[in-house]
Design a protein around this nucleic acid. Sequence first.
DNA 1: TTTATGGCTGTCA
DNA 2: ATGACAGCCATAA
Length: 121
Amino acid sequence: MAEDTHETFYEQVYEFVRQVPRGSVVTYGQVALELGSPSAARAVGYALYFMPKPSDIPWWRVINARGAISYKGRGSSADQQRAMLDDEGVVFDADGRTDLKVYRWWPDGSPGTGDQETAAR
DNA sequence: TTTATGGCTGTCA
DNA sequence: ATGACAGCCATAA
């Protein structure tokens, strides 16, 4: 459906995050990559910082490339985010990290499905 | 138009 | 494996 909208980068981020199913997570770099800018991870994080409706967006499913949380948003804390993911079934390591190779989610038609290369970082 | 910021990422030592 | 540095992108003022 020609979703070739001219929305802002932020809007694209919100939509992408909105597609993340429960129990799965995605990294900033991943989102940026899906949006067309593999290096716009920072912009992605900033986009969530401006979340107009955090209640309408599973921002807690967005973590950094290391599988850890760094959220410092306005009102929410990383600790709370971890609780949310833990409640969805995402398990965290002693270092507060999760196995991206297990919880990372990819949109329909994207790679990742059926690949398990190095997997180690 | 330029400057500054930031929930990041990858590479080097 | 850990710590430090620079790079890149988009938005707001």
